[in-house]
Design a protein around this nucleic acid. Structure first.
Lengths: 192, 192
DNA sequence: GCCAATTGGTTCGCGCACGAACCAGTAAGG
DNA sequence: CCTTACTGGTTCGTGCGCGAACCAATTGGC
């Protein structure tokens, strides 16, 4: 097994397996709830935030604006979210989850992340720590392509990335902006 | 500063960082040689194989047929490879690298994989082994979603590197028009 | 008040990635 | 032979994913 493969090759192959696993899971989701991974993820985060601008949402799910716009288009088309312009700052677009959106969420299977998390919980503490250290180191080595060399990290300097779990918690960072509070001064937006 | 992030979250974030690093590298490649990661990888593997059918090539780079077809379209358009039908079995399409393709390869920077490899070499043996074990385990955990089949990677050369997109900006897609090369067991194929 | 920056989102163009459907061709059976 | 099955590639449709360009508001200067 894998005799011709160098150790380095095997690592790269493993990364590919991970990427592919994410993709496979996304396709399974489509069959089960008609939503892709990114869509479900976005819906979930939107539900946690309750009310959020597109920008804040993009940050929370770690996607670029244009990408999120496309995903939101699909979610709107399925009637899972509302997309409304704020009256306060009319550039801002506020996202909320519809009734149907919450229903969908209730019956939706877990994200790959969550399943993965469960598996992680089956491991010993030291194993998890080791996995984390290893993959972070890997990430650092790959990022070091152009910029300075591998930062010395022990697993502390991390990005914010509140990639949502299921723990109902409000994103702490939301780009301090007026959107957050529950101010409902929004109007329907008539997208064609 | 590691605020509310659980260990599991951090792992997921690290995976994102890796995927993103691959993407970033692909974009750098576009600026340097006008080829994306997948394109360069495909060209490289094609050069190593010398002569290969689309199917064999797809297997070697771990991409689906349709995906590879698109990449080959772009490589043909740039005159880096030839695409001809075999006379023996006229269903089969044989891929070869053109002179220009070899020149491009000669001046091309390394794949992410190779830079990554150099960094790996800077590590101690036990560290590399640990990294491999960790990421393989991670991959296995993620794959274990639905089907329980063991990975099984066929023992060939499994080069690989990048994944998603960037933007080279060329003309819109056209049907590949084969650029002539020597005949062997193959004939020119006239698409369109 | 008015025009220049800035900010928030969307649109546009391109590439990757894949499954399903679709054509060849080729091989198998009669 | 002729029909059926299968195989190799491409085409089609969908969904990411992003940067650049683009509006539309808002803010900053003066």
């Amino acid at each position: 097994m894998t005799q011709g493969l160098t150790l380095e090759d095997q690592i790269v192959v493993a990364i590919r397996r991970i990427i592919r696993a994410i993709d496979v899971h996304s396709k399974q989701l489509v069959e089960q709830v008609g939503l892709t991974g990114p869509q479900l993820m976005t819906l979930k985060v939107a539900a946690e935030l309750g009310t959020a601008s597109v920008g804040a949402l993009a940050k929370a799910v770690h996607l670029s604006g244009p990408t999120l716009t496309g995903i939101l288009d699909r979610l709107v088309r399925r009637g899972l979210i509302n997309r409304v312009t704020a009256t306060r700052d009319r550039r801002s677009v506020v996202i909320t989850v519809t009734e149907k959106g919450y229903e969908t969420l209730a019956s939706a299977p877990s994200l790959l992340q969550e399943r993965f998390r469960q598996k992680l919980e089956g491991l010993a503490e030291w194993e998890r720590t080791m996995l984390l250290a290893a993959i972070q180191r890997m990430a650092a080595m790959m990022e070091a392509g152009e910029m300075e060399d591998v930062p010395v990290l022990d697993g502390e300097m991390l990005i914010d990335a509140s990639v949502p779990g299921e723990t109902p918690r409000i994103a702490p960072f939301i780009e301090g902006e007026s959107i957050s509070g529950g101010h409902d001064d929004v109007n329907e937006r008539n997208y064609g």
